[in-house]
Design a protein around this nucleic acid. Structure first.
Length: 476
RNA sequence: GUGGUCUUGGUGUAGCGGUUAGCACGCGAGAUUGUGGAUCUCGCAGUACGGGUUCGAUUCCCGUAGGCCACCCCA
């Protein structure tokens, strides 16, 4: 075959004459790239992403584990709309919070209602609890959810504008065991997917206690103003609790000596928190008491926690966690005893937690890579290969008959060469291949090939199912 | 939202003023007609977008978009 000679590509680019076409001064805006057909192509919106089939091994496993946990701990699935009234989140998450102030995707519906894409699910679930009169059911009401959330944040690795969360809520009970159960759920989820984690935990007490503490904190920091970084000076009035996680070198000293919220809790709150910790110890859940942990949503009271990958923890000599990484929080939650009432229900204690699935995928990937663990793809038991028209027709029927037998079959009717089909079987790493050709059709037989040894045997078509089951150890 | 940095086929990369833009993975076809994991051959596919400088730009400059990093904050 003669070597193909590439013909010089025709000039695709616009020819620009010497005189330079009148300078179109206006700074060029990036226009959508054009496909070869000359049609505009589209790309995903900023901060959004496609979850492709090749990631299915993660997503499907996660979903299954989340379901198992829900079943075992008796949480019922709740699906709430993605679209809600903006006011719901303003009231629940808090007016001054970043989530509400600058991250909400909101717009007016055709009838003028101010709606938004939910930035989180807890408020929706509480709304549903109240709206459906669930306080009349046996308490607590335990529900879980799985779905996309939306936050118009600046995208970064592990931070998307549309992201999936799985979460669990226990409404209608105030008992340290409920808080502990939440933490256990978060911990177990990651344990089950094979990722070691550690819990950061703190208590924010009651709103009264918190206010008293904040006052103390503010007056402490006011005196040290001159030592602080600019951000912290602003934080004193804007968001005092955030003073506690400033990373500036200059603020560390001031921070270390700052009053801690745990010292400002009343006996009741303190005891409650201690009980939660006792449960964690009983469950052997590794946790770090983190006095600086405050959460970004206003509705939390008492227990708050976040969960981090254990392998990313860096500790100093004293054993304190230095910097767990800004995007590494895998999830979090806590108690929100006032939210139900705030949203118009009767005073009802509650707690919950949520996990970020994209972060779980990313963390598991990193973990697997670092430890040379192979995350398995979906496994097939048998590849069914066919050869020739008659065989193809019969194979179609036989494959259909094997559906529901528990044998995971793989096949490809669009490839007719046996060689290609065996290549596919090989890449899928199936232990056995069933081969049906012209000859076998006539003999009412099939060939079963053991892919590891290469040994083949000819068996009666009628016995195929039972023989395969036997080989695969799927009898019973 | 603020600052920084980067952007070459689907993926990972080479080239750093003039090249048929190289390589690997991947995908597809095939290596005598019904047999995989090896090898080989051939093929597919790219300089994010818009300007500018230049005889000439993948390479230099500006802008836009996007990614990433830090901050803010959070999952």
């Amino acid at each position: 075959m003669p070597k193909k000679i590439k013909v010089a590509k025709p000039l695709k680019k616009k020819f620009i004459p010497r005189e330079k076409v009148a300078k179109v001064a206006a700074a060029g805006k990036a226009t959508a790239p054009e496909a070869k057909s000359g049609k505009k192509t589209f790309s995903v919106l900023r901060g959004m992403h496609d979850i492709l089939p090749r990631e299915e091994k993660y997503w499907r496993t996660f979903r299954r584990i989340a379901e198992h946990l829900a079943d075992f701990y008796q949480f019922g699935l709740i699906e709430t709309p993605v679209l809600e009234e903006v006011g719901l989140f303003v009231r629940s998450i808090g007016k001054g919070t970043d989530v509400v102030e600058k991250e909400i995707y909101s717009f007016e519906d055709r009838d003028g209602t101010k709606v938004c894409l939910r930035p989180e699910a807890t408020a929706s679930i509480v709304r549903a609890y109240i709206g459906n009169g669930m306080w009349n059911q046996q308490q607590p009401v335990k529900m879980w959810y799985w779905g996309p959330m939306f936050r118009h944040d600046r995208p970064q690795n592990g931070r998307y504008r549309q992201f999936f969360q799985v979460g669990y809520e226990t409404i209608g009970i105030k008992d340290p065991a409920a808080d502990a159960e939440m933490i256990l759920l978060a911990y177990s989820f990651y344990n089950d997917i094979g990722l070691p984690t550690v819990i950061h935990i703190n208590s924010l007490g009651t709103p009264e206690e918190r206010v008293r503490y904040i006052n103390e904190l503010v007056s402490y920091y006011r005196n040290k103003r001159s030592y602080l970084c600019e951000d912290c000076r602003n934080r004193i009035s804007k968001n005092p609790l955030r003073l506690l996680d400033c990373k500036e070198e200059s603020c560390q000293k001031v921070k270390e000596a700052a009053p801690q919220i745990l010292d400002w809790l009343e006996e009741d709150s303190k005891n409650y928190f201690m009980k939660v910790l006792e449960y964690l110890e009983e469950l052997h859940i590794p946790y770090v008491l983190t006095p600086t942990l405050v959460r970004g949503l206003d509705y939390y009271t008492h227990t708050v926690f976040e969960i981090y990958p254990a392998f990313e923890e860096e500790k100093n000599e004293a054993g304190a966690v230095i910097n767990p990484g800004s995007q590494s929080a895998l999830g979090g939650g806590g108690r929100y005893d006032l939210l139900v009432e705030e949203l118009g229900g009767k005073p009802t204690p509650a707690c919950g937690m949520a996990l970020g699935l994209e972060r779980a995928v990313a963390a598991l990937r990193r973990h697997a890579e670092a430890n040379k663990i192979v995350v398995k793809d979906i496994k097939y038991d048998v590849f069914f290969a066919q050869l020739g028209d008659d065989a193809k027709r019969l194979a179609l029927r036989m494959i259909n008959e094997l559906r529901g037998t528990g044998i995971q079959l793989a096949f490809n009717f669009f490839k007719n060469s046996l060689k290609t089909q065996l290549e596919l079987a090989n890449s899928l790493q199936v232990p056995y291949v069933v081969i049906l050709g012209q000859k076998e059709v006539q003999d009412k037989a099939v060939i079963i090939r053991d892919m590891e040894s290469g040994v083949q045997e000819i068996v009666d078509q009628k016995k195929l199912e039972s023989i395969l089951k036997k080989k695969l150890g799927k009898l019973s």
